[in-house]
Computed example of a mutant assay.
Amino acid sequence: MKNILLLIILFCSGLLSAQNEVVTPPEKVKFTFEKEYPNKVPVWSIDYVGDDNDEIRYEAKFNTDKNTKALAVYDNLGVLKAFEQQIPLSQLPQKAQNYLKKNYSQKAIKEIAVVVNDKNKTTYEVGIEKDSKFYDVVFDQNGGFDVIIEKN
């Protein structure tokens, strides 16, 4: 019985330590990041995307200045797939600001970001907390409402 309990404890601690693993991206990815964002210190993570979660994305979280957070997403060849940066409410297009004022309280807004993808398409994502759930409200480049996505 002691052996089974010991095995369970070892298994659980192994799972926990694997979750804190440091991610080191390929040299191409690191080189591209350092070229685009010199003197920035990223925290790397991995995300799996695609129909079968068969594509790897390397995500670099970093600060553009002392108050602004950013995220750069690369494929395994070092190609930038998306860039996301925090912005204040005042930098949202007026149309998006009006939508938010009409539909949500100021307290519900938790974060705001501008996102540019690899096709140079700009969108705005606003993190909203409502009824103990978290949502991303997405607007197009002109501030027109696009979609609400529930986050887990």
Rank of each mutant, 00 (worst) to 15 (best):
R57P: 04
I87C: 04
N39A: 08
V49E: 13
N76Q: 09
K61P: 00
N53Q: 10
V29D: 02
K81E: 15
K30N: 10
N67A: 12
N76M: 10
E36T: 05
V29N: 01
S90W: 02
K30L: 07
I87Y: 07
Y37R: 06
V29R: 01
K61H: 10
P42W: 07
S90F: 06
A70T: 08
A82P: 05
Q86P: 09
N98Y: 05
N53A: 08
K81S: 01
V73Q: 10
E84I: 06
Q85V: 15
D65R: 06
K28E: 09
R57Q: 12
N98H: 12
L89S: 11
Y48A: 02
T64A: 01
A60E: 05
P42D: 08
Y48R: 10
K66E: 14
F31G: 02
T64P: 00
P88V: 12
Q97S: 04
K95S: 14
I56R: 08
N67T: 14
E27Q: 13
K95L: 15
Y58A: 11
Q91G: 03
Y99A: 02
G78L: 05
W44I: 01
T68I: 15
E36W: 04
F33I: 03
K61C: 09
L77T: 15
K28A: 14
A96G: 12
G78V: 11
K30I: 12
T32R: 12
D47Y: 06
D47N: 12
P93Q: 09
Y58N: 01
K30F: 02
P38T: 07
V73L: 04
